[in-house]
């Protein structure tokens, strides 16, 4: 989990077809929320049984989508790397950009043989 706030803005309510249009992003995005494309979401995705449950159902939706936006952000050419750590000597790492997976839980890497 990345500990940042997620922001959202409901830009249209469509009671006729039981849906809303909503924008969302992480709060520290480099782009304003209005620059994001809204998505249409059915009421069925939300839990109207209480305010708390309502908030939690919104949270689930906007968190997943905001994380997806984060993952889709382009990588700066300067930050691209295919280098790997091949020794335990820091001298071998000086001035090299190394990419490693975030966090402690990652997907297994499947290869074709």
């Amino acid at each position: 989990m990345i500990p940042i706030n997620i922001i959202f803005k409901v830009v249209k309510n469509n009671p006729d077809d039981q849906s809303i249009e909503i924008k969302m992003c992480r709060q520290n995005s480099s782009r304003p929320i209005d620059d994001y494309v809204p998505i249409r979401v059915s009421y069925s995705r939300f839990d109207f049984s209480s305010v708390y449950n309502f908030q939690e159902s919104i949270r689930e939706l906007v968190s997943d989508r905001s994380l997806m936006y984060l993952i889709q952000e382009p990588t700066l050419p300067e930050n691209k790397s295919s280098d790997e750590i091949e020794s335990i000597d820091f001298n071998d790492l000086i001035d090299r950009v190394i990419a490693i997976p975030y966090g402690t839980d990652n997907e297994l890497n499947e290869i074709e043989l």
Binding site: L108, N109, E110, I111, L113
Partner: peptide, 21 residues
């Protein structure tokens, strides 16, 4: 090295039983 491909730690491959490795 499996079928000329070098595997790294924690990598895995699904095997095709019709193939030789």
């Amino acid at each position: 090295i499996v079928n000329d491909k070098t595997m790294k730690r924690y990598e895995y491959a699904r095997l095709d039983v019709s193939k030789e490795y």
